[in-house]
Each structure stands twice: as C-alpha cells, then as structure tokens.
Amino acid sequence: MNNLLYVYALCVVALFIKMFAISCYQGFYRIKNKAFKNSEDADFVSVAAQAEELPQVVRAGQAWANDLENIPLFWVLGGLCVALNAAPELTLWLFCIFTIARILHTAAYLRAIQPWRTVFYTVGIICLLVMAINAAMAAWQHL
C-alpha cells in the first residue's frame, strides 16, 4: 500500500505540473504577442485589449477544460484505490498509464493531432473505468 500511495502522490504532482504548464503556455502566448482580452491586463502593458483570445490560448483553454473533466475523477478514484488497497499492482499501472495518457493528450491537443488526441483520451477513460471497478470490488470484499 505504501508504494501505491507514493506512486499516486507522484502522479498527482505530475498532473499538477502538467496543468500548471498549460497556464504558462497561455501566458507565454499572451505576453509574446501582447494580446490580452481583459482590459486591465492590456492596460498594464499599455496595449489595447483584444476582442478575441489568440488561437493558442483558446486551444490551451480547451485542453484545460478537458483536464477538469478527467483529472478530478482520477484524484477521487485513485484515492479510493489507495485507501482500499485495491489490486495494488494493477492500480499502480493504471495510475502511471493514466498520467502518461493525460500528458500525451495535452501535447496532442495543443498540436491538433488526431487520431492521437482521441486515443490518449480513450486510454485515460479506460483507466478511470478500471479504477472504478477496482475500487468497487475492493469495497465489496470488505462488506
């Protein structure tokens, strides 16, 4: 169980860094192009506010939104798997595969690469489904 907790912690941190990188990516493009939609941001650097976000910023926002549909589920299901010590070896693999799939999904999303974006998304979803089954089976065994 200890190894499972440590791997879970490392995956959570890796996913945090990945999500933080998306924010930095957006900021980089805004600053590089001096293109800010919010007037207070534009005023701060003495440029006019833009009516629309840059395409790179919009795309990164879409990747971020997709993360918000998946990563919180990983936190909850992963935490349950750790707490229940649900099939530790399988769960360890699921944690690692999910994390790698989400990182690759973001890279594919930012570069608009299909079918890989969908492949990585699907791999992540399958990991979540197996984690849910894994946690349910472990809970059922303890009833």
Score class of each variant (00 low, 15 high):
residue 72 P to H: 06
residue 6 Y to R: 14
residue 15 L to Y: 06
residue 99 T to A: 00
residue 88 P to K: 11
residue 121 Y to H: 06
residue 26 Q to G: 06
residue 95 F to L: 08
residue 115 P to Y: 05
residue 65 A to H: 00
residue 79 G to L: 08
residue 3 N to C: 09
residue 58 V to L: 10
residue 6 Y to W: 15
residue 52 E to C: 02
residue 124 G to A: 01
residue 105 H to A: 01
residue 105 H to N: 01
residue 95 F to I: 08
residue 112 A to N: 13
residue 33 N to G: 07
residue 92 L to V: 15
residue 138 A to W: 11
residue 110 L to G: 04
residue 5 L to G: 15
residue 53 E to D: 15
residue 16 F to P: 05
residue 40 E to Y: 15
residue 86 A to W: 11
residue 52 E to V: 02
residue 40 E to S: 15
residue 137 M to A: 06
residue 49 A to N: 13
residue 3 N to H: 13
residue 114 Q to D: 08
residue 116 W to E: 09
residue 92 L to Y: 14
residue 120 F to G: 00
residue 25 Y to Q: 12
residue 130 V to A: 01
residue 29 Y to A: 03
residue 84 L to R: 09
residue 111 R to P: 00
residue 54 L to P: 04
residue 35 A to N: 11
residue 86 A to K: 06
residue 22 I to T: 07
residue 124 G to D: 02
residue 41 D to Q: 14
residue 79 G to K: 10
residue 122 T to I: 06
residue 91 T to D: 06
residue 27 G to F: 13
residue 108 A to R: 07
residue 141 Q to D: 15
residue 37 K to L: 11
residue 28 F to W: 13
residue 101 A to M: 05
residue 102 R to V: 01
residue 106 T to S: 03
residue 136 A to G: 02
residue 122 T to N: 05
residue 10 L to S: 12
residue 17 I to D: 08
residue 126 I to S: 07
residue 131 M to N: 08
residue 23 S to N: 09
residue 127 C to T: 03
residue 30 R to F: 08
residue 54 L to G: 03
residue 102 R to F: 03
residue 52 E to M: 05
residue 51 A to Q: 14
residue 89 E to N: 14
residue 57 V to L: 12
residue 100 I to D: 04
residue 129 L to A: 06
residue 120 F to E: 01
residue 93 W to P: 02
residue 14 A to P: 02
residue 41 D to T: 10
residue 99 T to P: 00
residue 6 Y to A: 11
residue 56 Q to S: 11
residue 118 T to C: 05
residue 53 E to T: 11
residue 49 A to M: 08
residue 40 E to F: 14
residue 47 V to Q: 06
residue 65 A to I: 00
residue 137 M to R: 10
residue 140 W to Q: 09
residue 55 P to G: 00
residue 38 N to C: 06
residue 25 Y to D: 12
residue 63 A to G: 01
residue 40 E to I: 15
residue 124 G to Y: 00
residue 8 Y to I: 06
residue 127 C to V: 01
residue 18 K to T: 00
residue 108 A to D: 03
residue 45 V to E: 04
residue 37 K to N: 12
residue 140 W to Y: 13
residue 35 A to Y: 13
residue 127 C to A: 03
residue 19 M to E: 02
residue 35 A to Q: 13
residue 7 V to L: 14
residue 37 K to D: 09
residue 36 F to K: 08
residue 46 S to H: 15
residue 33 N to L: 08
residue 51 A to D: 15
